[in-house]
Nucleic acid binder design. Structure first.
Length: 157
DNA sequence: CCCTAGCGGTGCT
DNA sequence: AGCACCGCTAGGG
């Protein structure tokens, strides 16, 4: 489904377990897990409302008051660990790819951590934009570096 | 700035 | 099993 925001329409996908994909305006949403029967419309509508509010808050650089359940089960074990580590970065703070790798007990899997960030199916709400390269480098961003810059700038205040 | 070597997870063959 | 990706990094010019 589509979520209208001041920054444009985002595409959100839900599985029977929660929000499983979020795509920037003009981007294709990632494929949803095969275990994705169209669940109870009732419940999904509630998740969608929560998602819309959380997304708008996040885009404004604020901490969402409520979160929809996230279904990150499509990732490998390693990817899910990285994504959980991302969720532990407080709003307004940043980490390096190396710090993320260390945080999940794989201090040398730095590059793999970067790859896992790029595979994040729920950008913005799973804040992969808070991960920078070493020495203050911006690093990459699959949605486009403009989005990374915008999100970071909004959060610092 | 550039280049190189080394790194580890993932997906494809 | 092999291999070519990658949102990386430290070290050296």
């Amino acid at each position: 489904m589509t979520i209208e925001t001041p920054e444009g329409p985002f595409a959100a996908g839900f599985s029977d377990r929660g929000l499983c994909s979020l795509a920037f305006p003009g981007h294709q949403p990632r494929p949803i897990p095969s275990t994705c029967p169209v669940g109870l419309p009732e419940r999904i509508r509630g998740w969608a409302t929560t998602t819309a509010r959380a997304l708008k808050a996040a885009l404004a650089g604020k901490h969402p008051r409520a979160w929809p359940p996230l279904d990150l089960s499509a990732g490998t074990g390693f990817q899910q660990e990285v994504w959980q580590a991302l969720r532990r970065i407080p709003c307004g703070q940043t980490r390096t790819y190396g710090e993320i790798a260390a945080a999940i007990g794989r201090p040398r899997a730095v590059r793999a951590a970067g790859q896992a960030c790029g595979a994040n199916p729920v950008p913005v709400l799973v804040p992969c934009h808070r991960v920078l390269g070493a020495h203050g480098r911006l690093g990459g961003f699959s949605g486009g570096l403009q989005w990374k810059r915008l999100l970071l700038e909004r959060e610092v205040r």
